[in-house]
Nucleic acid binder design. Sequence first.
DNA 1: CTTTCAATTGAATACCTGTTCAATTGAATG
DNA 2: CATTCAATTGAACAGGTATTCAATTGAAAG
Lengths: 123, 123
Amino acid sequence: MKDETEFDDSCTHTLHREVVELVKKNLPEGKSVTDLSEFFSLFGDYTRLRIMMALEVSEMCVCCIGESLDMSDSAVSHQLKILKDSNLVKSRREGKFVYYSLSDDHVKSIIDIAVEHLSEESE
Amino acid sequence: MKDETEFDDSCTHTLHREVVELVKKNLPEGKSVTDLSEFFSLFGDYTRLRIMMALEVSEMCVCCIGESLDMSDSAVSHQLKILKDSNLVKSRREGKFVYYSLSDDHVKSIIDIAVEHLSEESE
DNA sequence: CTTTCAATTGAATACCTGTTCAATTGAATG
DNA sequence: CATTCAATTGAACAGGTATTCAATTGAAAG
């Protein structure tokens, strides 16, 4: 009857055990990590990122965004919906046009940090 | 013979035209935006993000990461390869084990910024 | 040299997600 | 009220990607 009966799967070194337990304790709950990864995913798509960077320059209506980025209005609208549902952009209607803009400057600051990281990378 | 022959697609208002041209001028070239979106994508996957957050706590061997996060060693190894190719994690071999750790503290700072953003969001 | 365990790899699979296309809604205008 | 243009929506499609599974490599120990 060995001492290891409760540790019968892989990587059973006691030293490693302690680390595993420590990590399990300190890891945030699944929900918040999911939220975080979904947040990063918003920036992880090429066209969505381009839309946000375009809106850093100026607010624009849907068709202007499409023309600036050479995308169909439909594709733009779909992505804008995702960004709006995530509170990264907001919109206002003026006559026939719906103008989109960034909700706040979090977007810019997050992109800036990443740009900075990537530029340091290539040194 | 109208003046609009060169502007015969949608959204032809001169006011909008100027904005479109401004945005086109100020938008970074495609390559750098692609790099940026790929960078964010690394954080945009649930399991990859969990791996990085686990490594914030301590360096670990592959099987310990798997055990901490309840994933197969193979799945962990595949993701670690992606993270290593992107220079977000590094590894060292010690006997039979390969220990992984974060390359630098950029990972932590980027995650922290996002966490901060999300917490402000919910106020 | 054979065995054992950790880690990696490649191929196949399954899932997710962005785009397209067609149809529809909303608002202004004649 | 019909028309026009901007925008939205839903369904279908296609491309990318994470996981699984099986096989293999690498290092230590008997």
